[in-house]
Amino acid sequence: MKVIIINKEAWAGGLERLYDSFRLFGPVKQDEFHIFKELSKGELPDMNLLNTRLSAKSMVYPQSEKMFEFTLDENRDDHHMLKEIHKDYSPRAVIGIRPCDAKAFLLVKANFDSPEYKDPYWIKSYESTTLVGYACNNPSSTCFCTTAGCGPFHEQGLDLLLVDAWDHYFAKVITEKGENFLAAAGWSSEADSDTACDEIETMRQAAEAKITTRISTDKLKDKNTTELFEAPFWEDVAFACINCGTCTYLCPTCWCFDIQDETFGLSGIRMRNWDSCMYPLFTLHGSGHNPRDTKRQRIRQRFMHKLKYYVDKYEDGIQCVGCGRCISHCPVNIDIRKVCTLMNGFEP
């Protein structure tokens, strides 16, 4: 495994060089929290963070995204025809993405890039993106990544993993994309691989030891779906829920969207916006019937999807990476760890 040492004094200079070949995105502090933003030339990502308030999913899959444009002007030959919109898919890099958010892209990929369905917007965007991970030396108390198929130094989904070691970063090369990124930055001082890997391993263990909350997911797969669906605890779980979209919008693995047309005079666009299974509108039929009319049904859907349907369908663990955002920011303190415990331990 190739490891490059990036001296922190060479950090800004390297980023400066990267602007020539990449659009750079990184965490910046806005008000009281961090969000991912496109960095303007000379702007540095703020690497002093726990994690961003919103996940990195919008880097590939924006909350609102244009899909097509059209004209209603009947004097034009192409009226009422959807036309593809030209978009910027030039190389971009997301610097400082936490391993949980990177792993989440792989879970989301199962939906947007499957043998049956290919989502062109997501795929093009994802393929143009280099994910420069940032290992968590200090995970937060709501992190439970180690029992959600991930970890503070997890490499799956990343092209490069940066590890903060006081005066320098170790940059662990994971893919060719990562290698190219380093080359473009001009960071080339190779560390002795064994020593560096040992050092990173020690830091990994220290970080993992700081993660105190765990979930058990081992029995989810064997549960009977209908019994779990009918479980009595849903009423209690759902009571506090106000059916806002906070959990779904902050979640790195929630992928649902809604398609809308908007017209402005004679021109218009078709776009998609994140949607949330917490909203009654999500499942409202044209007939007026709503199969998920109550919040108990909606909240059950969210947890069943993440912790049961996904588990059964993809056989790749739960649809959650343990980032803990939904726990920290749920306005009414609904805690997925608690719900997972209820589901995993449920006996009818």
Partner: peptide
């Protein structure tokens, strides 16, 4: 500028109980 339209403000509010909100 940072609003994500999650409607947590609306839904946490006891006054917002319309069967269909105008945004929907």
């Amino acid at each position: 500028s940072t609003c994500i339209r999650c409607y947590a403000c609306r839904n946490a509010c006891p006054l917002c109980y319309c069967p269909t909100c105008f945004v929907d």
